[in-house]
């Protein structure tokens, strides 16, 4: 999941709701979409800004570990494909920032909060991409886990968020398949290449499971978000679904999922598997992952280095507007 530990407001019972809040909840329950100008509870708005913002940040920070390999992709075709994928991630970030902006917060404000560390992005992007197989593993596992979360979110109650998700899902499947195609190539290559693929799977397996966030069966926040339909499934449901779909894909590659406890459970028609190390997850979220500092430095540097360019375009636009105004005055 690209949004983890999003703080929501406490769940209200029907009796505690104002008539306006009850009417709002009825609309959500009926599957109606909420649009920007509609009345909404303040908590709904705030939670959505946090969730969509974090989701958007994850898209653009997610460009960094992959951008790392654009110049070193093994063929020109792979380079072009990776470039297209990384460009897609920028687009996905933009769709989501636009959706967040309909809630009364500006993109620049959200970026400021990312750069100052007040808002988070997904823990997964704080892991390094050490070899070319990692680019395969990221597409296959990380985008795969993201799709698992994003497909149900197409049905989310907030119209602009839902429309952004529909657009993103349409493009995302290319990402996962290009990743799997890299893994196939590596797994069917020389023994050394297959080892690289296995090594990438070993390192990305548990961080990918962490993407769905900790078990939320006892979480009040999660219950409110689910009542508002800004979260559709529990973290555990999505994680289970991801494991069920991914294990056979690993088997096809001839790779081993790095979990000794992994076993098919006939009764639940799903795999039993080990939980990731949650203390590691919380450390990464706190800023102590292998690449947190590097990622933030790269983000802030890109933003600051681009400032003269953004200002220049503004100055040009102002000048052109003044020139047009002067020309129309002269014509009168």
């Amino acid at each position: 999941m690209y949004a983890q530990l999003v703080k929501s407001e406490g769940l209200k019972s029907r009796e505690e709701m104002s008539p306006q809040e009850q009417a709002f909840q009825d609309r959500v329950d009926n599957g109606e979409k909420i649009e920007p100008k509609d009345w909404m509870p303040e908590g709904y708005r705030k939670t959505l800004v946090r969730q969509i913002g974090q989701h958007a940040h994850s898209e653009i920070v997610g460009q960094l570990p992959e951008g790392n390999w654009i110049t070193r992709a093994p063929t020109l075709e792979r380079k072009a494909i990776l470039l297209a994928k990384v460009q897609d991630e920028a687009g996905h970030g933009l769709y989501l920032y636009s959706a967040a902006e309909t809630l009364g917060v500006s993109r620049d404000e959200l970026l400021d909060k990312l750069h100052s560390g007040k808002m988070k992005y997904s823990s997964i992007f704080n892991y390094p991409t050490l070899n070319w197989a990692d680019i395969g593993a990221v597409g296959w596992l990380v985008d795969g886990a993201a799709i698992m979360n994003q497909v149900p979110l197409q049905r989310t109650s907030y119209g602009p968020y839902s429309r952004a998700m529909i657009r993103i899902c349409k493009e995302e499947s290319f990402h996962q398949r290009q990743g799997y195609a890299i893994m196939m190539k590596m797994a069917q290559g020389t023994p050394e290449q297959k080892d690289m693929a296995q090594d990438a799977l070993n390192r990305f397996w548990f961080p990918s499971l962490m993407m769905f966030g900790p078990s939320d069966k006892d979480s009040v926040h999660s219950a409110q978000s689910m009542a508002w339909k800004i979260k559709i499934n529990t973290n555990d449901e999505l994680r289970q679904k991801f494991v069920n779909e991914t294990v056979p894909q690993a088997k096809y590659l001839g790779l081993t999922v790095p979990d000794e406890k992994l076993e098919w459970n006939e009764e639940k028609q799903g795999y039993d598997f080990s939980e990731p190390d949650w203390s590691e997850f919380f450390e990464v979220i706190k800023g102590n992952g292998p690449c947190n500092r590097e990622r933030m430095d790269a983000r802030v540097k890109a933003w600051e280095d681009g400032e003269w360019f953004r200002d220049g375009l503004n100055a040009y636009a102002d000048k052109a507007a003044n020139r047009r105004k002067a020309a129309s005055v002269a014509a009168e």
């Binding site: 460009q87 636009s98 493009e171 636009a317």
Partner: peptide, 23 residues
Amino acid sequence: VGSLHAPDAEMAINHARDVYTRR
């Protein structure tokens, strides 16, 4: 199809090309 930020109309068209017509 959506919205975007741009300093002027010309750049808005360029950004729209990049953001909304990649396929």
